[in-house]
């Protein structure tokens, strides 16, 4: 059975080399996906992303990946990382209001708390609902590097506390997963999360 992981390159993601390297270390076969035809060929999808919500959506429109992603991310195991998680929500408010891929019923808002923003550094996750993605990772710390968060109440699988503020650090609905932290920057815990992702069963 083929198990090819496609890392989506939509122009704004600068961290593709780090993500690819960590996925390969975790044992994945990885290919870079830049258009709809390439997306057809992969079994699993990783949506990376650094930069802003609005720029990301513009790039996805331009490359024609928007429509294809909306279809594929719900039928193939998909992992959104940081901005890649955020654009799976319905709507974002970074540099103006823009429509997301709409898998998660929620919006993306700035982190407002009593600490410094961006939230930067290792922090714990508090797993609420056991999912295969977070198996064995209940007490681990992961690296966060973000100024925005997904506001959602129905699909939360993990929360994180930061300076008196609690936000969604992992989310799941059907085949689609999102993590606000960076597994590729979280030492062995991150590699283990990628192993769990690679082992997820397909439809």
């Amino acid at each position: 059975m083929s198990n090819l992981v496609g890392v989506v390159d939509y122009g704004v993601a600068g961290n593709i080399p780090s993500i690819t390297k960590a996925l390969v270390t975790a044992g994945a076969d990885v290919t870079i996906v830049k258009n709809a035809a390439q997306l057809e060929q992969v079994d699993k999808i990783v949506l990376p992303g650094v930069g802003s919500f609005s720029d990301a959506m513009v790039e996805l429109q331009k490359s024609g990946l928007m429509t294809a992603l909306k279809e594929h991310v719900t039928i193939k195991p998909t992992l959104g990382i940081c901005l890649g998680m955020q654009i799976l929500a319905k709507v974002g408010f970074e540099y103006g209001e823009s429509e997301g891929l709409g898998v998660f019923n929620g919006e993306v808002r700035p982190v407002i708390c009593h600490g410094q923003v961006p939230h930067m550094g290792f922090n714990n996750i508090n797993v609420l609902n056991g999912t295969p993605l977070l198996n064995g990772l209940e007490n681990e710390a992961f690296y966060f590097m973000h100024s925005f968060e997904v506001v959602n109440y129905t699909d939360v699988i993990a929360l994180t506390d930061y300076c008196g503020h609690t936000f969604v650090s992992a989310i799941n609905k059907g085949m689609t997963y999102g993590v606000q932290f960076h597994p590729e920057k979280s030492r062995e815990a991150g590699i283990q999360l990628f192993r769990n992702f690679i082992a997820l069963e397909m439809n």
């Binding site: 704004v12 650094v50 930069g51 720029d55 961006p118 930067m120 100024s147």
Partner: peptide, 8 residues
């Protein structure tokens, strides 16, 4: 910051 995000 606009292109890559403040965190970068």
């Amino acid at each position: 910051s606009r292109v890559f995000g403040a965190q970068a």
